[in-house]
């Protein structure tokens, strides 16, 4: 056992102080130590995208970072997006366009797409397929996800 490292970061808008062994992955820290189980763990080597979160506003893999590396940064997980009563327009669009079936991949898609839609307000179907190329979904066949993103863009532009 190595010594625990102390760290401090902003988590979903609130200051967070924590400690962990340096080898603890950020996604495991979020899920097991804090109980934020929205970020999922599919592959643990960067391929599936289920663990995607925002760090300083940018989508990153939380399975390819150590928790201690969040020190000093702004971390947002899917839990920060919306509530059951007030969903984010992207979440609404996923529900309306059937952008999910089992939902395992969904948090990663959402956290990939939130910054993407902020930068690209009017993406084409092709652009969207490129944007989600780093996220794997085993259920939907992607078509409904693409539809959901097109719908979300319309909602967010309205």
């Amino acid at each position: 056992m190595t010594d625990k490292a102390q760290f401090q970061f902003t988590l979903n808008g609130k200051e967070h102080t924590g400690e962990a062994e340096p080898r603890l992955l950020l996604v495991d820290y979020l899920r097991h130590e804090i109980g934020l189980t929205g970020s999922h763990v599919g592959c643990e080597h960067g391929v599936c995208g289920a663990c995607t979160i925002l760090m300083d506003g940018q989508a990153v893999r939380s399975c390819l970072m150590f928790a201690v590396q969040a020190d000093g940064h702004d971390v947002r997980t899917v839990e920060s997006l919306g509530t059951m009563d007030a969903m984010h327009p992207l979440q609404e669009a996923f529900r309306e366009a059937h952008g999910l079936q089992c939902g395992f991949c969904t948090p990663g898609f959402l956290m990939t797409l939130v910054p993407y839609l902020e930068e690209h307000s009017n993406p084409s179907e092709d652009d969207i397929r490129h944007a989600i190329s780093g996220n794997i979904c085993r259920c939907t066949g992607y078509q409904h996800i693409v539809d959901a993103v097109l719908l979300a863009a319309r909602k967010m532009n309205a």
Partner: peptide, 11 residues
């Protein structure tokens, strides 16, 4: 935990 333990320094 997945990775083996290591010492971590962030200069």
């Amino acid at each position: 935990m997945k990775p083996a333990s290591f010492k971590y320094l962030a200069p």
